[in-house]
Design a binder for these strands. Sequence first.
DNA 1: TGATGACAGTTGTAGCAACAACCAAGCATG
DNA 2: CATGCTTGGTTGTTGCTACAACTGTCATCA
Lengths: 175, 175
Amino acid sequence: MTTPWLDRRQLRAWIRLRAVTELLPGALDTQLRHDAGVSEFEYFLMAMLSEAPDRTLSMTELARQVNATLPRLSHVVTRLEGRGLVGRHPHPQDRRTTNVRLTDDGWATVRRAAPGHVTTVRRHVVDTLTEEQIDQLAAIGDAILAELDPDGTMAATYTRYDDQEPGRPKPAAGT
Amino acid sequence: MTTPWLDRRQLRAWIRLRAVTELLPGALDTQLRHDAGVSEFEYFLMAMLSEAPDRTLSMTELARQVNATLPRLSHVVTRLEGRGLVGRHPHPQDRRTTNVRLTDDGWATVRRAAPGHVTTVRRHVVDTLTEEQIDQLAAIGDAILAELDPDGTMAATYTRYDDQEPGRPKPAAGT
DNA sequence: TGATGACAGTTGTAGCAACAACCAAGCATG
DNA sequence: CATGCTTGGTTGTTGCTACAACTGTCATCA
């Protein structure tokens, strides 16, 4: 099978994207650990819970939204539970499912962490780009995710803000 | 301190970028592990070596190019050495430095893995974007990396192809 | 030349993630 | 109502990464 190689322009773009995917997560993680004592994954998990009805999701649904396997999520929830940030609650009807609920402490932690997190996102991404580039980035992301996440496993996360009215109450942790 | 929140367009862009940084590395890693028995990090490391003069770099310089700490690199090199893909060689002059050299087996492994890797990069990124978007992505990457990697630690990696002539011999593993 | 500090790597330990095996509850079919 | 399949979660093992402490080498300067 003959694989068309990447030309210079494509290589330029790809190498930069690769560098971003390499460096950006670590930068966010470092800031959150330092300022809020929470990993980026834990923060994102709690952010997803904070936007769910009754701040509650089942393990399976939560795993989908944060792109984690069920075993991994189980371990992480156990740790967060030990710190009092989330709680497990058996589902009243279906006794197979376990509901995870963000506690008041967890909610406070997310609210406390959010501003610093937004500042970091601004410094590293949003404020370095022009308005046009912001929209270009969204479109590029759409194109890549269409192939990378075809059945929209994480789609709930990134289609949530597509068609909102401006007056919508701001998501306290949706960043 | 008042943190200006992200507006809807900014949030759209950011959430997509975050999803890409979450999903893309895993996709590349899975493909390389499956097809070549090598992690994405190991592949990238060997690719950097393959483009160095005499396929050799010092531990420190290699750590810079692959954005790894020295301890982490030391462990990885030990494993790769055990598989015969790289070799350690003491520096003749400065006996503090250890040179890492890609073996013939390592070189063959990289060459064997490259086509499938390029195919994956094309499918997930390059071929999903228009020509304009390719250039936009490169520019966006430049802007983000200027803030994220100001002293150009990984710069050697992503500025290498900026001003090349078309006739340049193609980098066998530069993706 | 002999002490001090910086540099280059290695090794040991602890924590987190992937994978696999497992258990338990629901649900369908005969 | 018994059997088998599917779904939802948890637990145990292995491998990898970050962090810290340590060794050995070089440069500098008194």
